[in-house]
Design a protein around this nucleic acid. Sequence first.
DNA 1: CGGGTTTGACCTGCGC
DNA 2: GCGCAGGTCAAACCCG
Length: 482
Amino acid sequence: MENHHQMQQPNREFTILRSTDFLRQNLNLYPTTVNTGEHADPSIKEVDFFSSRSPTKNSDTDNSSPEEPHDHRHTNMAKDDGSPTLFNDQLVNTALNLSPSAGLSRSAANDENIETLLTTLQRESLRLKEENCKLRTMLDQITKNYNQLQLFIALQKQKQCQKMETNLNGMMFGQHLLDPRGPFTKLDAQVAPFPDDKSGQRGLPETDPVEDVPEQSTSQSWGSSKSPKFEESNSSELPLKKTRVSVRARSEAPLISDGCQWRKYGQKIAKGNPCPRAYYRCTMAVGCPVRKQVQRCMDDKTVLITTYEGNHNHPLPPSAIVMANSTSAAASMFLSSSCSTSNNNEALSNTVGVFSSMPYIPMATLSTSAPFPTITLDMTTNPSALTSPLPLHATTFPQLLGHPVIFPHKMPHPLLGQQQPLFTTETMSAAIASNPNFTIALAAAISSIIGAPRGNDGINNNSSNGGSDLPLNGTSMLPGST
DNA sequence: CGGGTTTGACCTGCGC
DNA sequence: GCGCAGGTCAAACCCG
């Protein structure tokens, strides 16, 4: 949500600049030279065009200096109706003393000018109010659509669950349906192994790393409950679930460049795989709980399997955010659409179907082998023709989980965009047109983003990381981020 | 000299 | 309780 909010900032700023520039350029409102009378006060007068009050009534109340164009007092202002304003810089310094008391000695010419200015300002104010009104209408519409989608999703999930319960004869996992923690929390160790989960086939053979639940804690331990060093937080509260995110990608390099800095702290020969498994810890920030395991696939040595767990407690570099977004969205959607019991093959297949329609989101499978469920994003295959033109080579595709999910359509960030083409209107449209499930996926993603409780970790809430902002009640993927 | 890697030892959970 | 396997620690080593 925060990301969503932030992603909109540029547009707002654009509007702001346009408005203020318009006023300044057309109304000659620059504060430098105008002295409107006996008040040779160089202080700046400002007009709040977005306030419901008449601009003329505020003019002599603000004495902010021209040297403080970004005075914080000008930001985060609320309108009289209590709603936040759409503009940060709605106060325009007219350099004119517009208060009635100051105009007694003005010449007629000045009065005329002022009246003209006031008229113009009022007109502009009206125009902006109309614009504001339109935006509100749009927001209402979007909110309405979102609610409808949520309803739809809830119905779909209910159907799935009922169907599943019937199929399973209400035996094994029926109890999950009543789990007050909600559908996401069902991805826990109780889930039976995914049939397709054969070691070495997808994801790490035996164990894979991660992602976690922001709600529980923004810093999680790496799977095992051992390491006291990384478990200082909430050790008394067992996580409701712990999920890892595994990324399969072809790479000759020993490591995938994911934009983060890692320090190797161990290596082990895992059973069933002659290739050693390396253990890495994020070193971009002191105490960052994110870890990752890197291991080559036993069957195909060119495939590098990287598994992430934990949330970064620091901002991520742009290169790391790309992957974080993709994997986060993928995992989020995957988990969102898999209903409560991930043992449901139907749900899983549906999810994969959804993924196949999502550009930049690789084929995904869910492995629930103990102790933690692992989402595997397979970047070694090309799910569909729609799948982005983005080369998913491990060496170029940063993998970062554990970060706020920024839904793909918002990804074309100035910085991120330079690295690789992200979602475009065309690809998105194509995806929508080609797969009706896209709407469901979209709704799930939006639901995750909008509905997910904000992590209470201030650090993680920053714009680039928010590591714990991943939907799933916080499950965020790391680039390690999970 | 500081930071990263290697590697054997140790800890812990789990299955039998 | 025992053994196994995964995961982690930390001393030794390497490198710029």
